[in-house]
Structure formats: structure tokens, C-alpha cells
């Protein structure tokens, strides 16, 4: 492995960067270091925040410093990855009814598909949680099939309901808050990502695999 860059962040962090642009190898290194930090930590470790090409490692400046943290990170990076555990994909329900999917006709047209073909393509995707970002519970899912890849819209649309299933490029996201978005809205999910269970307040862990399952309007309403 080429050495990652270690970038100091104020008095409390080190950003460990494996690449400049998104690629599978860099993300695998992020996941590996995140797992090693969760398993072993180091004295003064506070939390880690994984992203696509880098991971922010937060520490307590009263207990350690950047140099000691970077040394500890070298040790963790040298550890062998644990064998990947086989996990059951998380299931996210989605209703594609027209009023829940205002952009579905335009997405289908831009991709040269019928609406049913676009839905089938979305359902066929094998998704994984790359990171949470932006706002609570915003889990960025990679794995949108290439047939549905579209750049985001030129301008964001305001007031998009929580639970909207939105796509842009290779990414898919189920929103948790009513927010503006420039992504394409193709459905609505009753699946709660922010959960009332204090022991497991978020549906996904980073790295989880995700499958979408289509539901009818009746089932959607029954689960509201």
C-alpha cells in the first residue's frame, strides 16, 4: 500500500487520506482503518468519521497529540484485515407511485427506459452504505446501476419530503428530513433510518449492504 497522507486538523484530529479521487482501493483502506479503530482504538481516541477517500480520526488533545496518533495509526494500518463477515442485506421498502416519484418520468426518458424499466433497474441495484453525511441519518448508498446514472439537477428543489428515495450518479439516498435536494426523486420509503431504539438509533452501519423492495401504496400507508 502507498503511504496515506496524514493531515492535522486543529488540536483534535488527523485526516488520513488514501487518494484524491474516489476509487475502490482507497475506500477499502478507509473501511479497514475504521474497523481497526473500532476494534483496538488507541489511548485518547474519540471517534472516527469515514468518507470516500479519507477518514477523520478525532482524539482528545489532553491525552495525546498528532504525532502519537499518527504513530498509532501506522500500527493499525499494518494490521491484517479481519475476514469480511457475511451480512444480511438491510431491506428498504419503496413505493414508486407517481406522486411519490415526481422525477421518475424524466429519469426514465433521460436514460432511454420506460418507467417500469427504470424501476426494475433501481430494484436490481446491489447497494452498500458508503458513509453518512450532511445531516442525521443521510446514508449515501453506492451501487445505482449505470443505466440510471444521471448528473444532479442544475438547481435544488426545496421542501422535498422526508422518506424520499433520491438518486444522482452512482448514489442513492433515503432522506430523513424535509430538505432541498438537487437529486432525482424516484420514490418514497416508509422505512425509518432514524429509529426510536436507543440501542440502535440508525438502521445502517457504514459498510452494510442494502436491497430495495417495491411495495404498493396500500402497504406504504399501512406502514406509516
Amino acid at each position: 500500500m502507498t503511504q496515506p497522507a496524514f493531515r492535522p486538523v486543529a488540536e483534535h484530529g488527523v485526516l488520513v487520506e488514501f487518494a484524491d479521487a474516489i476509487n475502490d482501493a482507497a475506500y477499502a483502506h478507509v473501511r479497514h482503518l475504521d474497523a481497526m479503530l473500532a476494534a483496538h482504538g488507541f489511548p485518547g481516541f474519540v471517534e472516527s468519521i469515514p468518507a470516500y477517500v479519507n477518514i477523520l480520526v478525532e482524539f482528545d488533545p489532553l491525552l495525546t497529540d498528532h504525532a502519537a496518533v499518527i504513530q498509532a495509526l501506522h500500527g493499525l494500518l499494518a494490521l491484517k484485515p479481519a475476514p469480511a463477515a457475511t451480512t444480511t442485506p438491510r431491506e428498504v421498502l419503496v413505493c414508486y407511485d407517481a406522486d411519490f416519484a415526481p422525477d421518475l418520468p424524466e429519469v426514465a426518458k433521460a436514460c432511454g427506459l420506460t418507467e417500469e424499466e427504470a424501476i426494475a433497474a433501481h430494484l436490481a441495484g446491489d447497494y452498500a452504505v458508503f458513509l453518512y453525511g450532511f445531516a442525521p441519518g443521510y446514508a449515501y448508498l453506492g451501487g445505482v446501476p449505470p443505466a440510471l446514472h444521471l448528473p444532479r439537477k442544475a438547481a435544488a428543489v426545496r421542501g422535498i419530503a422526508a422518506g424520499s428515495v433520491i438518486i444522482a450518479g452512482a448514489q442513492c439516498l433515503v432522506t430523513t428530513l424535509t430538505m432541498p435536494t438537487g437529486w432525482w426523486i424516484i420514490g418514497r420509503s416508509p422505512t425509518q433510518i432514524l429509529r426510536p431504539d436507543p440501542a440502535h438509533p440508525f438502521l445502517f452501519d457504514v459498510g452494510d449492504r442494502v436491497k430495495f423492495r417495491r411495495i404498493s401504496r396500500r402497504e406504504f400507508e399501512a406502514r406509516q
Binding site: 486543529a10 483534535h12 485526516l15 477517500v53 477518514i55 458513509l131
Partner: peptide, 9 residues
């Protein structure tokens, strides 16, 4: 401006 999204503090 094409850096991948990354953590903010």
C-alpha cells in the same frame, strides 16, 4: 472543485 465529500468539524 471536484474533491470527494469528506468529514467536516
Amino acid at each position: 472543485l471536484n474533491m470527494p465529500s469528506e468529514p467536516i468539524t
